[in-house]
Amino acid sequence: MRENNLLGLMIVLAPLSLASVGGATAIYAPLQHEAVELRQWVTPQEFLNYFTIMRFMPGPSSMLGALIGWKLEGFWGVLVATLSLYVPSSLVCYGVARSWSHFAGKPWHTAMQRGLMPVAAGLICAGVLNLFLLSGGSLAYAGMIVSVAAVLMWKQKLHPTPLLITGALIFETLYQLNLL
């Protein structure tokens, strides 16, 4: 039974590793279909709970698969699920990164590099806007975003962790004062 579950995790998650193009959310629908309906590893309510937990967890949200692994086989389930989720896509990325640095210094490489930079910059800017709108676009968020960015621009070498903890404390205070 145990081997079956671990093998099943691998069979379900490894293809999803390569299917998660454009963010981990792309795999939620197929994962739900496999884990809830076809294999009945978790109930619909459990899947929904896992989804909520992942919003409060560090790391990629596709670690949801690891929670399913935990429910099935404990620690080994987590390990097999994590490896299945990230090793296949990492191998592809490694291949691309390797050939990319192999050609460093060629004229087309420089052009590609310079061409990709503004695309990346535009993506990050759009990411800030979308996350802000997703959070409800409140004044508290806007104030926090701008002040944290200002502090980080001003102190280039500052470790961000104290700022994140300060952010948690400020929002906690606002919540206790019924201002959030």
């Binding site: 990050i124 926090m144 944290v148 300060t166 952010g167 404390l169």
Partner: peptide, 23 residues
């Protein structure tokens, strides 16, 4: 949840900082 939202907001601030340096 409020504390987690605070962390998320501060993290967006960090993202804005990255956006500025990328630009």
């Amino acid at each position: 949840q409020a504390a987690a939202a605070g962390v998320a907001a501060a993290a967006m601030g960090m993202m804005l900082c990255t956006a500025i340096s990328a630009v």
